[in-house]
Design a protein around this nucleic acid. Structure first.
Lengths: 248, 248
DNA sequence: CGCACTTTTGAACAGAATCAAGTTTTGTGG
DNA sequence: CCACAAAACTTGATTCTGTTCAAAAGTGCG
């Protein structure tokens, strides 16, 4: 199994580095773990596992063994209904924890596909569970991360249930902007890693509507679009659009 | 604090009874707890707390102290966007566990309103967390219940993102049917506890559309509607509608 | 028993989907 | 490095689903 980061490199300083910079952000940083706790956690974390663009990290129906912390790259998750409709349920970037929906039935409930060459850390769940009994902060943190996922999903439900096409696209761009910023990247210029169709699936719109809406925003001078390169020119106006289309 | 069930009644046999019949179904039943474990859990569970129709069990922004297991009754949860749009995120009946979205920020993230006179058990979260470190099955079960909530939310996202009005309403009726059946009630005849507007909010539709769709189903002989009394006459046809509208 | 809330139904309208071309980009192999 | 095929994107015209606006009828709670 090839990996850009050999096992022996996953020492405490290394993991710390990984945590604070890209990888285990969601898992480790806010947990407030001591050096000793960290050491225990790191022993469970496998070496980085690469996932090439287009490949699946896991697929719905596969047995659940581990959660995954995105170390770098970009992935989507999606559920597919029995009659073949796909709903993208999320986009995931460095520091995000994936696979929590699989705990419920011990089977993965969605597909996770890399949208660009990515790398994840595997967190064997049973072992993490055992460890979290010894480290209250870790246990609490897992509850928190799962809770945050629920809150996020409720936000998407609000978007899907209440918002118009323009509001959805604006909310999507602003959400990406915030997430990139949190990771130290530009909040106003970034590269969409997904197709218009995948954006549309996430937002409950057809790809043509996504395309048209982006074009319209560009005409209005709110953004600049060159393929998947996006530049946000007027964050305030985008926020205004979400706040019920007043003004602008 | 008035309660139909005094504290001293919450003895082991009582809690067992509550679990298997109505209340802590989601919390206790699948956890496979021993009698001893059960006893420990029951010491944490407060007496039943009544919530009258129209009252809030909790409101967004309130500090988070406990999860709630619905003992009996019917509640809705909803998030409200800054500009005032309401999205009903779920309907909750006996045995359901509520409040998990509050763990994330130690604040409730949604409103929980009783749609009929209800009663809940309060589960102080910090204490439950501590206890779950001593009872692995309990810890695992909490993870499972939260995971199930995530899976459920993804299902709603699929519905909101991909389905037409008729499909949504059919899916909603069938979902209620299943849930009532699991609790030992009729799966074909039940009382909607919520308004058309609340159904619409949950399904991403306007109340008029919900009403029209129910009327149409009635004309087609799939259901019988008398106000909030619903009778499902052709489950197969309703399922067919969800399976992409073929046949019928 | 009456008033407010809920529900139904109709008619006109709007927003997004669908259908359809044409263009651009990307990835691959020669 | 270029040529080519496949995939992705844009834009327009049309259609259709669901919303909006409106009014009337029904229900139930105090």
């Amino acid at each position: 199994m090839l990996s850009p980061i050999p096992v022996h490199d996953i020492s405490l300083p290394h993991l710390r580095h990984a945590c604070s910079n890209c990888s285990l952000r969601e898992l480790c940083l806010p947990a407030g773990l001591t050096a000793e706790d960290m050491h225990a956690v790191e022993k469970l974390v496998t070496q980085g596992r690469p996932v090439k663009r287009g490949e699946a990290l896991y697929r719905a129906g596969e047995p659940f063994k581990a959660l995954y912390a995105v170390r770098l790259g970009f992935l989507k998750t999606s559920v597919i209904s029995p009659d073949g409709r796909e709903q993208v349920t999320g986009f995931h970037m460095s520091g995000d924890l994936m696979g929590m929906d699989a705990i419920s039935a011990d089977l993965h409930a969605c597909d996770a596909i890399a949208l660009e060459d990515s790398e994840v850390c595997e967190l064997p769940f049973t072992e993490m569970e055992t460890l979290s009994r010894q480290i209250p902060a870790l246990q609490h943190h897992f509850y928190k991360v799962m809770s945050r996922e629920i809150v996020r999903d409720h936000g998407v439900m609000l978007l899907l249930g209440n918002m118009k096409a323009e509001e959805r696209v604006a909310a999507f761009l602003l959400s990406l902007s915030t997430r990139f910023q949190l990771r130290g990247y530009s909040s106003t210029g970034f590269n969409l890693r997904m197709t218009r169709e995948e954006i549309g699936s996430y937002l409950g719109l057809k790809l043509e509507t996504v395309s048209r809406t982006l074009s319209k925003f560009q005409e209005q001078g709110l953004i600049k679009v060159h393929n998947r390169l996006i530049e946000l020119l007027d964050l305030a106006a985008l926020r205004q659009i979400i706040s019920n289309e007043q003004g602008g």
